[in-house]
Amino acid sequence: MEDLKKELKLKIIEALNLEDMSVEDISDDEMLFEEGLGLDSIDALELIIILDKDYGIKLTDSKDGKKIFRSIETMATYIAEHRSK
């Protein structure tokens, strides 16, 4: 699980071009949207692509996204349970 969280952080930093951030700057339970990392709706689309492309998870209900993308912790837990890649 720790490896998956680190991998996720690296993917997010790269996909969202968070130039000045490193893995250490993102805590596992930090809010990804609004407060915390301050991501927005365009970033949410990038995260959906990461889930689909890299882990084979297709999100169909936007309500799920709100829970899944709450933090690195919630993302990693969901990926571990649902991944097909």
């Binding site: 365009i42 689309l45 990038e46 692509i49 492309k53």
Partner: peptide
């Protein structure tokens, strides 16, 4: 690279 799938909006915008 992604075979015309997984296109995100940022670069396009």
């Amino acid at each position: 690279g992604y075979n015309e799938e997984y296109l995100t909006p940022t670069a396009f915008i």
